[in-house]
Design a binder for these strands. Structure first.
Length: 185
DNA sequence: GCCAACGTTGGC
DNA sequence: GCCAACGTTGGC
């Protein structure tokens, strides 16, 4: 049994969208990065547990958990010429891109903003917190997964304890750059 | 909006 | 196979 973190922009597919989906289950399409693809295709198995992360959100945060319910299989959205994730090199005969199915685990009673996670010693090695970490599918250690779950059930730390933030920030809402991404890649 | 960090592309 | 140019990601 393995642990993972999946990123999604909430404007594209939030954990609330997952909660509203039939059977609270969805296929995780749109990953177009080879490293992430390899994990989807080769490593993720039914029963694996997933941290659900909202990227490009305010604030970016781990917001809940999910469970892998179907191992990697070809991502058919790569075959849709009208879709955002079309790749002419991907065919049914020789697929390039893969996806898994996930089902909602729980929505945390509170979000865990990345700034707060940066201050947690148990998460020091976490892939998400490394500079330049951009993978939309990341392996997570069991100890990290458990530390996150524990944190989610604790009250939010006092304002001063959360990691630094710039005094002022522009609102990020609607800051669309490039084509909309469903789930990253 | 900025920009660091990373992945991909393509000329050679 | 190198590597510069370019595109993308994503926190800030």
């Amino acid at each position: 049994m393995n642990y993972w973190l999946l990123k999604s922009e909430p404007d594209c597919f939030s954990i609330a969208d997952l909660a509203a989906a039939p059977k609270q289950t969805t296929y995780w399409d749109g990953v177009r990065n080879y490293q992430a693809r390899n994990m989807l295709r080769d490593q993720m198995q039914p029963g694996d547990l997933v941290l659900y992360y909202h990227s490009s959100a305010e604030p970016p945060a781990v917001v809940g958990t999910a469970k892998v319910v179907k191992a990697g299989y070809p991502d058919h959205t790569a075959q849709d010429p009208k879709g955002d994730h079309y790749d002419p090199k991907h065919t049914a005969m020789s697929p390039i891109w893969y996806m898994v199915d996930i089902q909602l685990g729980e929505i945390f009673p509170r979000e865990l903003p990345i700034g707060e996670l940066r201050g947690v010693p148990a998460l020091k090695e976490m892939e998400l917190l490394k500079t330049g970490s951009r993978l939309s599918v990341q392996p997570v250690r069991k100890s990290e997964y458990e530390a996150i779950l524990k944190l989610a059930k604790q009250p939010a730390p006092a304002e001063s304890a959360t990691a630094k933030k710039p005094a002022k920030r522009k609102a990020v809402a609607g800051a669309t750059k490039g084509a909309p991404r469903k789930r990253g890649g």
